[in-house]
Design a protein around this nucleic acid. Sequence first.
DNA 1: TACAATTCCTAGTAGCTAACTAGGAATTCG
DNA 2: CGAATTCCTAGTTAGCTACTAGGAATTGTA
Lengths: 171, 171
Amino acid sequence: MRLVKVSSRAHYGLRAMTELARAYGRGPVALSEIARAEHLSQGYLEQLIAALRRAGLVEATRGAAGGYQLARSPESISVYEVYRAVEGPIALVECADDGYVAGSCEREPLCASRGIWRRVRQAIEQVLSTTTLADLVREVDGEGACEEPRAGFIRLEALQHGSGKAMCTTR
Amino acid sequence: MRLVKVSSRAHYGLRAMTELARAYGRGPVALSEIARAEHLSQGYLEQLIAALRRAGLVEATRGAAGGYQLARSPESISVYEVYRAVEGPIALVECADDGYVAGSCEREPLCASRGIWRRVRQAIEQVLSTTTLADLVREVDGEGACEEPRAGFIRLEALQHGSGKAMCTTR
DNA sequence: TACAATTCCTAGTAGCTAACTAGGAATTCG
DNA sequence: CGAATTCCTAGTTAGCTACTAGGAATTGTA
């Protein structure tokens, strides 16, 4: 019963990236820490962060005391980039998507429903590409959230012991 | 590999509605005719149009020579109404959706990813609710498409014998 | 009055895929 | 050396979307 939905890949991937944005400039953060802070499965997160790494958005440091950090500043990474890295291009309906070859649907010239999906897609892309990780973090943590590193991982540690309340999940 | 996608319910439902918009003012159109024109499964379409009827968007005439017609003019029916009728409210991520009860996610105060999904949802709703069936049909059929009923079901008949090319489907 | 064409309703089903889990190899710090 | 990490690939499972099937009720037409 849900028409347009966001997969957990995108949701989790973005959540991981906001954690890295918060820790920007403080060296690598281990995946276990992110998983704990965001209450996500570490194994699953591994796959998502691998995609983010391949896209050049995060850098990994292997071995003990290793972890991940943003490859660029939070101000320069848009949510759209994160989205594409973990999910690929937005695919609403094939005939209104990016790779669509004009004419491959014979109904095309008379199809009255195509136009709207194109516009919806563009609206989504617009919002995603004009918002950066820094925007998201600032929105919640307040001004200066990304600029001046505070002592320790305040945000990360704050939520460690869940109260049993529901977490944000896809479903 | 698709992050945001439109279900076939919405896509098909909208396509059926654009056909009804084209036939507006000419009496009921049988489902078999719509199914043929849009190359959709009639049985599946039955379920979709039932939802549209319950939502008060179409009216049914039972019995022989029966069929469906728009309950209101194409100018007064937004795509958003169609969407909601067949799919329910837009549900991107539970914590950013309509029925979300503030505070039910304990991460809420620190969650930096919520904001963006709310904005994406609003952008989608904006596009959907400012576009009417008449807009869609006019876009494709040209000016006057919905105003002056032409003779016969030109548009409906035009595509009856498929050339074997791929049709617009969800996948 | 039959019958053909339609709407209406419910239940089932099959295949896909998202969301994980498992297991282990490679790397690096202490 | 060993603990902690990243890295990689191959399952697995449960849910859901997109149907199909079957039949009852309604109504214009011959």
